[in-house]
Amino acid sequence: MIVLSGRDLNKEYISRDRKVRPLQHVDFDLHQGEILGIVGESGSGKSTLLKVISGIEKPDSGMLYHLDKEYTGSKPEKTGKFLQMIFQDAYGSFDPKMNMEKSLKEGTASDRNEIVRVIGEVGLSEDLLDRRPRHLSGGQCQRMSIARALLSHADVLLCDEITSALDVTTQAQVIKLLMEIRDMENVSIILVSHDLALVSMICDRIMVMKDGVVVEEGKTEDVINKPSDEYTRKLLNSIIAV
């Protein structure tokens, strides 16, 4: 079943007197319980695509659907009912003046017991609820972001470079957690990353973007083993070279 889809999405803006087109005729489908990886170098349009999907930015043209229901142009206040975002800057995604309990309670009717249960699921203890974000580690903060997304009972998680600010050990823990959550809650995940190696490890399908265009899309093993686009081959070669 397709949970989320986009058709012919386009976006352009003017930056320093230059026309930039971060999205050009982008199509995507996200199936239930699937992890879709979006890879590409900086400026390829992957983060803009997440902003458009979440309603933070409006597409200039194109359509977005959630369970076959169109939601193009809906604001984040509405899209938040079915999707949640996990940010690259885990600390920045929590109000520095609020403790974790208040932050987690924001978009949910859940009581403290429910919150404690969910943060237990992501491997955190109750005593962290009284702390402010700056008193948590990067990994703990990112786990709190995942807990917040789970508390809102969203079908879709949008993960924007969620491991790039973490150390290698914590990266592995967060990725493992993400996979466990997919299996437990059957949520669908879009994982944006510039790290093709990471994406190829955990994603069911991969979408490769370059200059706002989807240059290749398919099952992970197909994209990794039989890349059809020159740009994908270059990305793969760069991993092998490393």
Binding site: E77, D95, K97, G107, S152
Partner: peptide, 26 residues
């Protein structure tokens, strides 16, 4: 444009609520 404001919007908070609970204290 801080992520926590975007997160609050995704949590369903209105502009007025965000101003009172997130922007004003900060």
């Amino acid at each position: 444009n801080e992520p926590y404001i975007t997160a609050a919007r995704l949590q369903g908070k209105s502009g007025l609520q965000i101003m009172m609970t997130h922007i004003m204290p900060n």
